[in-house]
Amino acid sequence: MGLRKRYRLRGVGTAVRHITAVDDVSIQMSVGETVAVVGESGCGKSTLAKLITQLETPDAGEMVFDRRPVRVRTRRERLAFSRNVQMVFQDPYGSLTPHFRVGTLVAEPLRIHRLETRPRLVSRVAEVLESVGLDAEIAKRFPHELSGGQRQRVSIARASATRPQLIVCDEPVSALDVSVRSQIVNLLLDLQRDLGLSYLFISHDLALVDHIADVVCVMYLGRIVEQAPAREFFAAPRHPYSRALIASSPVPDPRRRSPAPAVLGAVELGVAPAGCRFRKRCPLAVAICAENDPPLHAVAAGHLVACHRGNEFGVPTAFPEQSV
């Protein structure tokens, strides 16, 4: 059983409705690996991030870390876990406590986990700040005095201060100016090399994912619909939704016209139709799609897809619809 999370919808009516934000999601990661989770808004990416960092409790399913099931019932368990699994948030403006100075913010994980004695704390904070490319002088400033890129560096400094094994990055660069995005991405890659980090990288920027990910997972309405090594994913996506995502990501070439929309309509959040949850928007849907929900199954080594017709397309690069 993968991770599952349902939220109760608050309404005026008498009927209690739930929305299943994350539905039976299983992801395996190796040390030093970057797994990217992509999908459109509302597909459950951020909920997945909160489940993995144990900010939310899953309704079903279990997480295994270092061969042991994760338990965070007691304070000691929570500390042991959070020391190893950290998170970087999307919004660099909201994710730093506004009344803390940068030095206090960066010292906080060290204090919580008692990793440094008080006299050593200041110099350790300076080290951590320098490791993310910030001047140690910045410790005296407040978050509102920093630029977006600097704030995200502070967030990364906080997340990496305890030398975790896994950092969950929830769209860490999508709120930043394009000009500083690559700097932050390169910082993440440098840290990965230096500290042997693994990243679970949530994004909707496929060009970025192509650049950094080892494995790509595509989420749709709370479910993983395709999971593949990055190279294979971009060369031969199997799920029609993955193909649509790739087709819709912009290409810097003015002669290439943007292709015709490869999916139909917009997603109805939380309302998965019977059968395949993608079928109402799928240009390839056939009768069986309305009857059975396709399970995630292997089509090649390490390549999983949840589509009845996922086998039909060995190595196609273009959509049949695209030529129309």
Partner: peptide
């Protein structure tokens, strides 16, 4: 708020 979630994810009680 995000900054509260961030503190929790650091392991803050």
């Amino acid at each position: 708020a995000d900054f509260v979630q961030a503190a929790r994810s650091l392991g803050a009680s």
